[in-house]
Amino acid sequence: MPTIGIILGSTRPNRVGDQVAHWVLGHASRRTDVGFELLDLRDHPLPHLDEPMPPSLGQYQNEHTRRWAETIAPYDGFVIVTPEYNHGIPGVLKNALDYLYAEWNNKALGLVSYGATGGTRSAEQLRLVAAELQMADVRQQVALSLFTDFQDFSVFKPGDHNLAALTTMLDQLIAWTSALAPLRTPPATAT
């Protein structure tokens, strides 16, 4: 059964992203066709990118990079839960993505963003990064407004329409995860 990693892309104190990520996980875990696991970047601290070789070469020299690669490689796809900071993605999330290359390739990506304007600019930046990492981002995204989906900007209270968007995004993500499976499977070698 395929497994999707839900990456919580904020490590800030008092973040609201953990509420969002658990909402995604709670809804997604009701499915029986795919498994879901939460990956909190707080649990995977990485220094600013410190690998001497480009990640596309796969010659990881640091133990923290190898651990991160071992964490990401088994997943068949991802949902990234991201805030929008200054019209962009959090530095910690960009850093975590930049560390690896092949481990992201040929995997589907769904986006759940939040912020003053629903985190849409953060999601758009992630789509650009995902393309370079050879990830297939799905069209549907969940865009949560700090003004309407959070009480006092701190307690997550999503509107019902967000659940429909999440369900559609997950349906697209799982379809693309399955469609990309042959690309993630190494070809059989002739004997």
Results as ranks from 00 to 15, higher is better:
M1P: 14
M1A: 13
P2K: 10
T3L: 04
I4L: 05
S10L: 11
T11S: 12
R12C: 04
R12P: 04
P13Q: 12
R15D: 11
Q19F: 08
V20I: 15
A21S: 15
A21T: 14
H22M: 11
G26W: 01
R31P: 11
V34W: 00
L39W: 06
D43S: 15
P45W: 10
P47M: 05
P52T: 11
P55R: 12
P55N: 09
S56C: 07
G58T: 13
Q59D: 14
Y60P: 05
Y60S: 11
A69K: 11
A69H: 07
A69C: 07
E70A: 15
A73F: 00
D76L: 00
F78V: 13
F78P: 13
N86H: 13
H87R: 15
G88D: 05
L97N: 01
D98P: 06
D98Q: 01
Y101C: 02
W104S: 06
N106S: 14
K107E: 05
L109S: 10
V112T: 09
T117Q: 06
G118C: 08
G119C: 00
L126G: 00
L128R: 12
A130G: 03
M135T: 03
R139L: 11
A143L: 12
S145A: 11
L146D: 07
F156E: 03
G159F: 02
T168G: 05
W176I: 01
L183E: 10
P187G: 06
